[in-house]
Design a protein around this nucleic acid. Structure first.
Lengths: 209, 209
DNA sequence: GCTTTGGGTGTACAGACGTACACTCAAACT
DNA sequence: AGTTTGAGTGTACGTCTGTACACCCAAAGC
């Protein structure tokens, strides 16, 4: 028999995690806004009123899940950045990293993609804000690449927005294609082509201002 | 006093429309999956059980709304196509058309954008299918533009997917920016820049196959 | 003109919903 | 050792949910 004695904060943290995990499971099929406190409690294995010891509404639970999800997403961006920025196959590397992270953190990406459009107002706003931060981050990364000297900060931001949009759409398509290896490959290949097209376009772009 | 006598099919169609409209109103704030039959009925002004005379579930009501929404979206695509394809400001024309249609058909676009990610399974599938049809349509349009001769059908499809993705994202941003004229202008300007970048990229693109 | 049809009504019920309140009982603190 | 704290329990409530069933009555069909 394992030693099951635990401190109080450990027990609390364990239950909190169980709530977060249970919600991610339930959110694979539906959305936060269609989720009841009782469903979550049942999935966790606690009584409904115990939920309030950890979150005061489904909405604040959602905000916690947004924070958590973007921790793993930022880990992905760090992975992308880790590679040599001058490496010629940066596109392949980035897309590979995206694909593997989406598969590994499937629940988080599913949650973000769904709640971004349908979640409670504050959750939608939080996700929008986080994605905007990612865009800015990407913009500063792009500024470090060779050949980007003539671009204005505004153009970098616009380009960054386009790339992030395309990558979010790619993540969505990977989630839909899950399980069908050929479909997954096709999505990845398309993402690579699109990234190359965009980069070529950006290199040929001259700001009008 | 207006003549209020109506045929039976007229009355039925009128109520059906009222249900569709009421649902679009309710879907401005939430999602189909968080909507109850009783809420819809109350909004329409009919008794809950009367709902079944027109749809047998919220889901099939959703499918009807998808069809309806894409009728107006196709009208938009027709508007875009109506302009001279060789016209040099095709980008400006297209973005202007998109912006004005999103504003005019705000409810439909809100519905599509939200349910695309969060709706019932069959609704999500229907929306995905319709958007894919739009992509193919755009691909054939692109094939008619001068300078696209060297592109393979696959590359056209990939480019079309990228453009549609960017325009869907633009529509989402317009919906969020509604009411703030400066924000709306910024979104439109960004969409124009992105379209130009993509087109330049596509012109410089050479297929590897 | 009499019958049929079918959109809309009203009542009724079992189950799920959020949440208030009083409770237990170990861990944590003094 | 005695007290406090707080995560989790159990009951209880009024409200909302989907849907079954019997009903109404004007338009449609004969």
């Amino acid at each position: 028999m394992t030693e099951s004695t635990q401190t109080r904060v450990e027990r609390k943290e364990r239950t909190r995690r169980a709530i977060l995990d249970a919600t991610l499971v339930l959110c694979e099929e539906s959305s936060l806004v269609a989720l009841s406190l009782r469903q979550v409690a049942k999935q966790v294995g606690i009584v409904p009123t115990a939920f309030y010891r950890h979150f005061d509404s489904i909405e604040s639970l959602g905000l916690a899940l947004v924070d958590e999800s973007f921790v793993s997403l930022r880990a992905m961006l760090r992975d992308v950045r880790r590679h040599d920025p001058t490496y010629r196959d940066i596109v392949d590397q980035s897309v590979d990293t995206l694909v593997s992270h989406v598969q590994k953190e499937r629940q988080h990406f599913l949650f973000i993609v769904r709640e971004r459009a349908a979640g409670p107002l504050t959750v939608r706003a939080a996700i929008r804000h986080q994605i905007e931060l990612c865009e800015r981050e990407l913009a500063t990364d792009l500024a470090r690449l060779p050949g980007t000297e003539p671009w204005s900060p505004e153009d970098l931001q616009v380009l960054s927005n386009l790339i992030v949009t395309a990558m979010v759409a790619t993540a969505e398509d990977i989630l839909v294609a899950t399980g069908r290896a050929d479909a997954e490959k096709a999505v990845a290949e398309r993402a690579r082509t699109q990234l190359r097209m965009v980069i070529i376009g950006a290199l040929g772009w001259r700001s009008r201002t």
